[in-house]
Nucleic acid binder design. Structure first.
Length: 336
DNA sequence: GGTATTTGACCGTG
DNA sequence: CACGGTCAAATACC
């Protein structure tokens, strides 16, 4: 067993390393759509293999290491609820029920109120709040948002925003589902002004504070969290197909989802989680990409921050960190 | 009047 | 049964 594991580990490391390299190349080549696509495919392939391995040895039980049908059944179209796509995710084995343990991705974002909004909080999408709940053990309530275009464009993306009790200036944002809306309207706040920027989209800003019934605390929460976003970023597809593309790809990777997934056209992409191509144009800084599925109990991302993430240049690093908890990667020398 | 938010109720899951 | 997530009626704002 051990030998087997070691071998797998090597393979895994090799695959991940390659993926990383490819990603780096991609970064350099971004711009040339074709090249990017090829590279992305390769990246995906590498990660897929790695994931399969992980999946297999990591949790013997579920090893769905076979060519699991990647894409989820077009749930988006017909399904009335967002929970659908989780089903899509891992329904292979347990089919039947919808689960709440949707894989999702969490980001922690730090914001400084004192100095005004420092980080850009627009992710280019329009969110509509549909609920708020007090969470056990948390000081602050959790807010639930869904894409404004859910009905009009069948976009089932949702996100949850929770203020950290320990550090109120930090918000944990959990994205679920992928945007399938094409909102040119979202005009991404392009080169988001690094410094306090108005968190209101000038264009079509429809999220201004309306519910003036909320108290300040929530207001904060809301103003900031709601339109949330990252630096320049890009979540999902915005206007540039290229970015959309990459987002999807990575997304599809689903780092832990463990599915093979081949590229899915943006339109129908209903992958499961976003992946944020972090800011600064070229995935510069990493965040946490967490996809937790039933396998990984929790997603916590650990870094907060927009501000400092000494991590490398590629997002993949995150995984390393995460996986780390499950595997002895030490020797791998994941020093991206 | 249309759209967004608030908030209690409902429902599925563990 | 408790908790988290979503629904939907009521309400607020433009």
């Amino acid at each position: 067993m051990e030998n087997a594991w070691r071998m797998e580990q090597k393979t895994l490391i090799s695959e991940l390393t390659e993926g990383m390299e490819l990603a780096k190349q991609l970064r350099v080549n971004l711009g040339s759509a074709e090249t990017s696509e090829v590279l992305l495919r390769r990246i995906l392939s590498s990660y897929e293999k790695a994931l399969l391995i992980l999946n297999w040895s990591g949790s013997m039980g579920q090893a769905q290491a076979s060519g699991v049908p990647p894409e989820s059944p077009i749930s988006i179209n017909g399904s009335p609820r967002s929970e659908d796509f989780d089903g899509a995710l891992k329904d292979n084995q347990d089919s039947s029920k919808k689960r709440k343990t949707l894989p999702r991705r969490t980001d922690k974002v730090k914001v400084s109120f004192e100095s005004g909004l420092e980080g850009p909080f627009e992710d280019g999408y329009s969110w509509r709040k549909y609920g708020q709940k007090d969470i056990l053990g948390a000081k602050y309530p959790r807010s639930y948002y869904r894409c404004t275009y859910r009905n009009t464009q069948n976009c089932w993306a949702t996100k949850q925003v929770q203020r950290s009790d320990e550090d109120p200036s930090t918000f944990e944002v959990t994205y679920r589902g992928t945007h399938t809306c094409f909102n040119g309207s979202q005009s991404v706040p392009q080169p988001a002004s690094p410094e306090k920027h108005e968190h209101k989209l000038n264009h079509h800003s429809d999220n201004h504070q309306k519910g003036s019934g909320i108290n300040n605390e929530y207001l904060d929460n809301k103003e900031i969290a709601s339109p949330f976003s990252f630096p320049t970023s890009s979540l999902g597809c915005m206007k540039s197909n290229d970015y959309c593309f990459s987002s999807l790809m990575l997304d599809e990777n689903n780092f832990l989802g463990g599915f093979s997934s081949s590229f899915i056209p943006p339109a129908a992409a209903e992958s499961n989680f976003y992946y944020i191509s972090q800011n600064q144009m070229n995935f510069g800084d990493v965040h946490n990409l967490q996809q937790s599925e039933s396998e990984l109990p929790e997603l916590q991302s650990a870094n907060n921050s927009v501000a400092n993430s000494p991590i490398l240049n590629l997002d993949f690093s995150i995984d390393a960190a995460e996986l780390d908890s499950n595997f002895p990667f030490d020797n791998a020398g994941f020093s991206f």
